[in-house]
Every structure is written in C-alpha cells, then in structure tokens.
Simulated assay, not measured.
Amino acid sequence: MKMNNCTDCEVKTNNLTNINPLSAPIASMGLLVSMVITTVNLTVLLIFLKSKSVRANRHHNLVICLSICDLSIGLSGFIASIRMLIPAWSGLYVPCILSSVIVGVGVFMSLFQTFLISFHRFLVAIGSPWNDRLLQGKRKYAIYSLSWSVVLALHYALIRPYSENLDICNIQIVYGKNFKFFMGGYGITAMVLMLSTIILYLFTLNSVCKRYMRTYAWQIQIEHKTTSATSSNENTLYNTEAGKKRVFESLKVVGMIISLLVLLTGPFVVVVFMTLFRFEPSHSLIFITCLLSSINSIINPFIYSWKIESLRKEFKMLFQTCLSY
C-alpha cells in the first residue's frame, strides 16, 4: 500500500509503509504492556505525592523523574497501539504525531534521566561538591524542566505539516524532509548518553571499591593492634569475606542496571543509530524495539523500590490498603 503524495515530506514508498499481518497481535501486546507501564509508574508518582520523605530525598527525586519519563513511554505506546487496532484512527494525523513524538521524547528523556542518576551516583562516590551545586534544592527541578523543554522544542521544530489522509503512519510522515537529520541527531545523542551512563556506572563502582578497600585496610590495621593474634586472624578472615560480599552485591546491582539498559533500550538506540548508514528499519521493527524499551520502563520502578527502603515500604502500605478494600 502506497502513501499519499506529499511534496514537503519527500516520503518514498518502502518497507515502512507496508501493512504487516502481525500488526494486530503486536498492537495487542503493545496495548497490554503500555497499560502496565502506565499503572506501575503512576503508582510511583502517587507515592511521590503522598510521601514527603520520598520527595525530600535527592536520589528519590531523580528516580521519580525517571518514572515520569517511563509514564510518557506508556502513554505513547497506548496511543500507538490504539491506532493500529482501530482502522479509523490509523489515518488521523494528530494521533500519528502524538504517538511518534511522545515516544521519541519519552525514550530520550528516560536515557537522559538514567544518565543523570548515574552522574549523581558518580559525584557522590567521588565526594564532588558539584553534587550540591547542580542538584541541591530547586536546582534539580530547573534541570528537569530545562531538559524536557529543550527536547520537546527540538521535536516540535522538526515536525513537518501533512494535511492529507494517511494510509499508515510512520516517523517519516511526521518529520518529512527533516527525517534524516532527526534520526541522525537522535541516534548519535542517544548512543552517547547510553555509553556515558555505562561508563559512569563503571567509574562509580571502581571509586566505591577503592574507597572501601582504603577504609577496610585502616580497620584491619586497628584490629591487629587491639586484639590477640588468633582473634585477629579470625577477624581478618571474617572481615575479608564480608568485604567481598558487599563488593559483589554492588557488582550485581550495577550489572543489572547496565544489562537492562543495553538489552532493552539498547536495540532501539542501535536501530535509530543505524539509520545514519542508510539502514531502513521496518515499521514492525521500530515498534518491537520500542516495546522492548517499554519493558525497561516496567522494571525500573521495581529495581529502585527494591534498593530504596522508603519506596519499598510505601509500596507495601499501598498494596495492603488496596487488599483491604
């Protein structure tokens, strides 16, 4: 099926415009995943509004903003899935813009916020004063607002008007002659953000290990001076095993975060980045990679709730309250 002509869009007929017989099953899966994303991340936002302690903690603020990014991904997936399931919606331009732009902004801001969380942990690990200079008080909200505004403005500036009815919507229709520029810039920036996030996590882990080993060496030296030889040897062995356990637990958490980022959001970033080399992904491939990125949006709240006690307690209280009704 060919798309209608658009002199400003310069859109060519290719595999992006073909109707896939798997569209309905994929859209149904996308609708289910989007509803879960929206529910889980909306719950996190409710906890944020309810709990003053969660709002007051700097790290918790970073996590909640990530949930807002993930919520936008869920909403965009909901719109895209409805468009694929309802034929009357598939030809409407406004839902086409909304599903394309919101998912683009949501995924990018999710990458940026994950980078910001990684950067925050790095600054804390090295004891940098820039942690307070950048993220103290209302400054973090200024960073949130500025980053969202810039990304939304850039997306809006690159949208090209399209007045004719659509046979099927894709990202080429939305950005028209700016499509290559948009995909190139988006792909490069997203790839840089993802790699920077991974590198910062590794630097953070390295810094924490070095700091722990220095502290541990000091503790062992004091223990050797104040205990007997036998007791000291047993204590040393115990502390060594305890130290290893803490280090390996830290490696697990960091490895989990990196793995989820690479395995779930990575394919979307790679697909977009590959368009720089004249790679033309199908509409279904783009949708599936967005779906994988969306799964990351489901898992994120559970990871942080597992590691942050206050969030975990609030989740349990909310869950118990719901069961009581």
Rank of each mutant, 00 (worst) to 15 (best):
R312W: 08
G185I: 00
V11L: 02
F302C: 06
V272M: 00
S305T: 12
R121I: 03
W306C: 08
R214D: 01
S145F: 02
T197I: 01
I257V: 10
Y325W: 11
G74P: 03
S207N: 04
G255H: 13
G91H: 11
Y141F: 10
E309K: 11
K50T: 05
S294W: 03
K313I: 15
I143R: 09
S145P: 06
H224V: 03
M84K: 08
Q136C: 07
T321Q: 14
P301I: 06
I37F: 14
I222G: 04
L66W: 09
A157H: 03
I126A: 00
S76P: 07
E223I: 05
L42F: 15
F273E: 08
I299P: 08
F279W: 10
A190T: 00
S250W: 12
M183D: 04
S67H: 11
M109T: 07
T7W: 03
N178R: 02
S67A: 11
I117N: 06
V254M: 01
A217M: 02
M1C: 04
L75T: 04
R246Y: 10
Q221P: 03
L22N: 12
Y212G: 14
A24I: 13
C290L: 15
T189A: 08
C69T: 01
K210E: 06
K12Q: 05
V124E: 13
N131Q: 07
R214P: 06
L92F: 08
G184H: 02
F287W: 00
Y156L: 14
H155Q: 04
D167S: 13
V105F: 03
F302N: 02
A190Q: 01
C6D: 14
A242G: 06
G77H: 03
I299M: 02
W89P: 11
I47R: 14
I26T: 09
S324C: 05
S196T: 04
V253D: 12
L261T: 10
V269A: 03
L261R: 14
N57E: 08
D70W: 11
T197M: 13
L154N: 01
R214M: 07
L46S: 10
V94Q: 02
S118E: 05
N131T: 05
S72P: 05
V270Y: 10
I102V: 05
I295G: 15
